[in-house]
Computed example of a mutant assay.
Amino acid sequence: MAESTTVDIESQQAELDTYHDEPGDRPVLRARFEHNGSPRYMLYTIKRLGLDHEHGFHLDVQLVSDSLEGGVETVEAKLQEGDADLIDIDYISTARERADGAPIVAIHPYGRTVGGLVTPEDSPIEDLTDLRGRRIGVVRRLDKNWILVRAACRERHGFDPDEEATPVEAGSKVELTRMLRDGEVEGVLQFWPIVPEITETGPYREVLPMAELVQDLSETDRKLPISTFLTSEQYLSENPDAVRGFKGAYRDAVDRLTSDDELWEDIGERLMYEDDPEIVRAVRDGWREMVVADWDAETIDGMDRLFDHLLEVAGADALGVDHVPDDMFRLEV
């Protein structure tokens, strides 16, 4: 891990640790989230406002690397190895891991956490049709953003960029940004909170937000969550009150983050790599547009339709799984 990244993780962790009081007799929920992922804003809000104790549980937050371990993201590895009780990943990855036998379940939506296609300002890439013959950086080939791009290109434009472009796996979001800035790739599919950090501080532009592809491919106007919060079947069985408490604390945090601009100024100062007012506002507005506070059966139906559509268009090889396992989504806890 690069030294600057280590410092960033330690600095943010110190801010969170300021609010890590004793759990008392409350059940502990060990949350492990990426140091550059947007859930950290919500986790910080819960800890700063004491919403975990208010809802009867103790949230223990540790930020981790966004690199891969054994082909899966670090947070996934920690949950499956018993080192975490709460993470967030996209539901396609959840389906892939659960179909392979991982005892993990989705307990609540997070949001439409996709990214954007970012290129240098003078790039000839203007839309998806321009990806032919280009080197495009991705965190990994099974990343949801690349899956969405493959599905959209195959359905709308009659080609598969996995075959007619050159996807270059970076292994982490940090490395993905470096590859773009060093000119090793002609564009990247970067996670949405990092896009403003790139476009506001350098000669780069966002060609296409992946959120547009989500809505087009799902054929619905309803905002669908792509990422959900996960826990293990064992933790859910043994600590249902803690999971219910988290869901309540999350909803309260969403209420504050969607209405309190001063809170975002504090988050920008303490948790963001670029404490620039324009970047903070861009991330704030993007978070508010992305987040999903709750879900119901209609939401799950929409997520199933999107999965089926991606499967039909992109195929099981692109998704890494051919079905959403039964009982993966737990609406009622």
Score class of each variant (00 low, 15 high):
Q12H: 06
R48Q: 14
T94W: 09
R26E: 11
D8V: 12
D261C: 00
L128Y: 05
A2P: 15
D255L: 03
V214K: 10
T258D: 12
H53Y: 07
R244N: 14
G56Q: 00
V321A: 02
E3V: 14
N239A: 14
G268V: 05
A170D: 07
E233I: 07
P39N: 12
V243E: 01
E197Q: 13
T166P: 13
G50V: 14
L79I: 13
V61S: 01
V321T: 13
L49T: 13
D221S: 13
M272F: 03
D8Y: 14
M1Q: 10
V195R: 06
F33K: 08
E3D: 10
A242N: 13
A84N: 12
G133N: 04
I300R: 08
P325S: 06
V118H: 04
A151M: 05
E97W: 04
M290K: 00
L29S: 07
D60V: 00
D122F: 06
D162C: 09
T113Y: 10
P167K: 08
A211Y: 01
H55P: 09
E278T: 15
N239S: 14
V283D: 08
E73C: 13
T74L: 06
T119W: 00
V7P: 13
D241T: 14
P193V: 10
P203D: 13
E197G: 05
V64Y: 00
D301R: 15
H323I: 10
A151F: 01
V207Q: 09
N239P: 15
S123E: 05
D294R: 15
V214Q: 01
Q62I: 07
A318S: 08
A297F: 00
G302E: 09
E54I: 08
A31H: 03
R134S: 03
R40P: 03
R154I: 11
L148M: 10
Q190L: 14
S237W: 06
P225M: 01
T74S: 01
L142G: 06
A297E: 14
E155A: 09
M303D: 04
T220I: 11
G171H: 08
V118M: 07
L148F: 11
F191H: 15
D255C: 02
S93N: 15
S123P: 06
D21C: 08
V28A: 07
